[in-house]
Design a protein around this nucleic acid. Sequence first.
DNA 1: GAGGATTGTCGTCAATAAGACGATAATCCT
DNA 2: AGGATTATCGTCTTATTGACGACAATCCTC
Lengths: 240, 240
Amino acid sequence: MVEPELDALSRYSHLAVAVDIVVFTLIEGQLHVLLVTRGIEPFVGKLALPGGFVLAGEGLDAAAIRELQEETGLVPGIAHVEQLRAYGAPGRDPRGHVLSVAYLALAPELPHPTAGSDAREARWVPVADALGLALAFDHGQILRDGLERARAKLEYTSLATAFCADEFTVSDLRAVYEAVWGYPLDPRNFHRKLTGTPGLLVDTGRTRRNGQGRPASLFRAGTIAVLNPPLTRDEGFARP
Amino acid sequence: MVEPELDALSRYSHLAVAVDIVVFTLIEGQLHVLLVTRGIEPFVGKLALPGGFVLAGEGLDAAAIRELQEETGLVPGIAHVEQLRAYGAPGRDPRGHVLSVAYLALAPELPHPTAGSDAREARWVPVADALGLALAFDHGQILRDGLERARAKLEYTSLATAFCADEFTVSDLRAVYEAVWGYPLDPRNFHRKLTGTPGLLVDTGRTRRNGQGRPASLFRAGTIAVLNPPLTRDEGFARP
DNA sequence: GAGGATTGTCGTCAATAAGACGATAATCCT
DNA sequence: AGGATTATCGTCTTATTGACGACAATCCTC
């Protein structure tokens, strides 16, 4: 195709660009996703992923982080944020052609679970429930893609630590895996694998009492971000 | 943020949206990427990835496939095409804010390697060379991301077959892995792994003579698209 | 404060898969 | 015919996993 003149760029600006964010966190051992109730058309009253339009001159990552902060009050640096992919089917927004760049964010359990800075109500919904709801736009698909990305990256990265506080126990980590993958793991083999990967966990030397049972050693994330060989999950066992 | 009125969508259309495609193919056992020489500003004369602006009402995948067809004459269905990710840093295009959705395409060796339908010259460049060139825009980064995606997906999918013709030998497949990963694999272990994964390859019963040596059995791709367990690559061995 | 319940950690054993590499098969070349 | 070349099968060793026993260190209850 022929490219535009220098000043004719706006001839090709027929798409609005938005970001939508799949924010996961763990609440009482259960995986939750942040959803907002839409206050305006289209899809008034329906649940949707938090998001909004990219502002002029704003980068995509910046827009995602800004929206995340507006919806949750999350300070950048606490959560892990990465781009998922772009969704641009022509009919996905009834108002017109809107391209959405979806992001995946993982956060530790937050002190204030809900804090909407604008009119929309935001709340944490168990992922198992959210998957059964009819979300606005193609947000159901985006949620499924985000969940699959999170599940896959737990296999071969240290991403699970993004769900944990600065210091955590091996059981904390295992709870993350069990919540995201949806089935229980053997505590002994999990412990062997995670502590046996050099550079993954750094032992603080201290322990933490969890109500009952023997106190667990406290770790913080090490420098290694890649698990090689990976921690394979049992395909076909994930709870929908 | 506050959302626009129904008819105010254009207030948020300040980005132009383009697609850029990383097309890989194998030519004489070497991995090549399709690059075009830019005919207009900015970056006149520089090499860039093929791509162009998304047309009004056009989906992203459709735009990528259209551009791919315009540049290479590739018929949809022959090549594997998947979205890579979106690139939207404000300064990546000197003309203004342009969001690019990058795609990765893998094609078997084509009869007509170069066929530009417009003024730009397109040609296959060995990836080893392309990585050392200063490409236009952030296309160097996109190329590196595309290469990493291809390398990673060979590990756990049957994607290598996308580089091969309809029928192929185990050696053909191994040549794909060696070209993409950049180092040699043991023919015996590779053969055992690939033929030992049920459902991955379907034996046609026929063989093919390759100049010298014993004729090789001809296979076609089976129904299994995921390798479990994966074929792990040797990290830190890849040739740049 | 003794015993049981609970949770964390270490160890053992068998099954599986991968890396190294010998050996044979089926072709081409000279 | 003999050597070179490529394909395929087999063997051995080692690394990793999955299943599960055993012990350690705490809490709870009587």
